[in-house]
Design a protein around this nucleic acid. Structure first.
Lengths: 203, 203
DNA sequence: CAAAAGTTTAACCGAATGGTTAATTTTATT
DNA sequence: AATAAAATTAACCATTCGGTTAAACTTTTG
């Protein structure tokens, strides 16, 4: 029982690394087995197929990102306060899991049918996000926030937070920076993003 | 000679579609041949290997994106004017080639060594981008633009323009929109982005 | 402790994949 | 028209890949 849990977890850990690093198509079952230091047959023993193992990993990745939403956007605090928490949560989480955003968005773009339903389920289970959209509209009516279409509002927020991590390889070269300096830049960026949002979205 | 050029171009067209749709690892040479309605051996006859064909496609994609930069950022116009052109150029180009951003950024994240040199070559060949960075610093000193670190400035601009196209599949579901409506949203977004940048970056 | 159940491994399998070859067809040259 | 060169194809090849199997090993159970 002890050994079972151990192997199972070891597989997940290895699969997470390989899938996120290479994507579904680029990942090799043998590479996952090597990474976990076990026999390839174990992968199928515990998770049946590459697809099923992948779905477990993707589910975890989506969960991690969703959590940040729920954590930051729940409650009755003003929109701008929630956004500040969202910026901090996301930046920290992505700094600790730098490849997750491109992983999710890439697989999503290439395999629309599957995730969208999973994602939608998660959103429908929890109405935090829908409530937040309503809250934005309310604060716009109250004259607290500028009357910008809500989808544009959300796109702007998420763009500023997530894109820099996706474009990291490009920017590292363009500005000839080192990896750890970029992470630090992302830390400083928290405040910058908040300032941009405040001047652009607040009235 | 006529037929040769034709086949060669047909292969590129098919390869562009398949590679951009599935990525390098997910693309199949047979799928490219089928798409081009030719024998698979022709792919190797004209482009030797999958890798070499892929590099041709990637080069074209990077070229297309670089062009928009050069086109928008050259000359002596004020930074904000150039940004307006950049927003329009990029939005139009991506609307016509929706999968290119995620394609480039994804392959870049997974295969750092190769592109970064190609990209850097392109940047060093042309000093438009470096000049633009200097221009931002100048206008900041002149009190035209807010004194924001230039890398943050650039990240903010590119985030607002590119990310919404990458996250399109997610947002289509979240806001339950149709494909063409999203394209229209991106059209309207041009102005929104400019407004955000103006209020956030301009003094 | 012995049987049963669960775990792990080595060897194997069929299909798919990138790539090659040799022969055929088409085009260009004289 | 005859010949050389280029383009195209069908068949094939070696390797890789996801997945399976049967046997060995380990742990649990009665």
């Amino acid at each position: 029982m002890d050994k079972k849990k151990n192997t199972e977890a070891e597989i997940l850990k290895a699969a997470k690394k390989i899938f996120i690093e290479h994507g579904f198509a680029g990942a090799r079952m043998q590479a996952i087995a090597d990474e976990a230091k076990i026999n390839k047959a174990m992968l199928h023993y515990y998770y049946r197929s590459k697809k099923m193992l992948f779905e477990k990993i993707m589910e975890g990745a989506v969960d991690l990102m969703s959590k940040q939403f729920i954590n930051a956007l729940s409650g009755t605090a003003p929109v701008m306060d929630k956004l500040k928490i969202l910026i901090n949560n996301y930046t920290d989480t992505i700094n600790h899991n730098p490849h997750i955003p491109i992983f999710i968005l890439n697989e999503m773009a290439r395999n629309q049918l599957y995730f969208q339903t999973k994602m939608q389920q998660r959103l429908e289970q929890n109405n935090v996000f829908q409530d937040f959209l309503l809250q934005i509209a309310e604060e716009q009516e109250q004259g607290i926030l500028r009357p910008i279409p809500v989808p544009q509002f959300v796109l702007t927020v998420m763009s500023l937070i997530i894109f820099p991590h996706i474009a990291k390889p490009v920017f590292l070269k363009i500005f000839t920076l080192e990896d750890d300096i970029y992470t630090q830049m992302m830390e400083e960026r928290k405040e910058h993003i908040y300032n941009v949002l405040e001047s652009a979205l607040r009235l």
